[in-house]
């Protein structure tokens, strides 16, 4: 399989700039609002609502939009007919995955982890300053951010495993079909 033939050269640009923009926008906006609002006005309610709303929007965008468009992965939880909770991990097929823009996925993963790290730092700061209410804000944002990290990391592992399994299956299938065809010829 010459999957990497029509790959983007290293210097190529993002293939989904608008999705990348929104992927970064809400993360940056929630962080920036949280940091800057303390300087300009000191109204906890507004800070809380706007920051958490932006973080929730970011959670939704990453989970439902940018995840599947930038890296071709998606995770969600559903409840099956027996009332059991099932975690579903979806990925594109091998060929589409290989065609994913490298820059897109690089941006996706780095901003995903960087946001959580920044929130952890902000949480440590608010702990040092004994601001329990601001810890609440950071806690909510950090929870949302980490939920996406866990979801997508597991999804990524699952996708790799599926690809390996699929490769093994197709190989075995080809071999068996060849053997059977050989037998049918005989």
């Amino acid at each position: 399989m010459d999957l990497n033939n029509n790959q983007q050269p290293v210097g190529e640009n993002y293939s989904h700039p608008e999705i990348c923009f929104f992927h970064v926008l809400f993360k940056a906006a929630s962080l920036a609002f949280y940091i800057l609002s303390a300087l300009f006005f000191n109204n906890f309610v507004i800070i809380f609502v706007v920051t958490v709303l932006l973080a929730a929007l970011d959670f939704w965008v990453v989970k439902n939009v940018s995840g599947r468009i930038l890296v071709g992965l998606r995770w969600w939880n559903e409840i099956d007919d027996n009332g059991e909770s099932v975690w579903r991990f979806e990925c594109l097929d091998q060929e589409s995955m290989a065609r994913m823009n490298k820059k897109d996925s690089w941006l996706f993963w780095w901003t995903l982890y960087l946001t959580a790290i920044l929130w952890i730092f902000l949480g440590i700061f608010s702990l040092i300053r004994f601001q329990a209410d601001y810890c609440l804000v950071v806690g909510v944002c950090l929870t949302l951010s980490i939920a996406n990290i866990i979801g997508f990391t597991r999804c990524h592992k699952d996708a790799k495993k599926q690809l390996q399994q699929f490769a093994a299956q197709t190989f075995a299938g080809q071999v068996s079909s060849r053997i059977s065809s050989a037998f049918s010829v005989v």
Partner: peptide, 12 residues
């Protein structure tokens, strides 16, 4: 692509 690709289901 391999036709069986379309019916492959990830995660159950």
């Amino acid at each position: 692509t391999v036709p069986s690709n379309s019916s492959r289901v990830v995660g159950g």
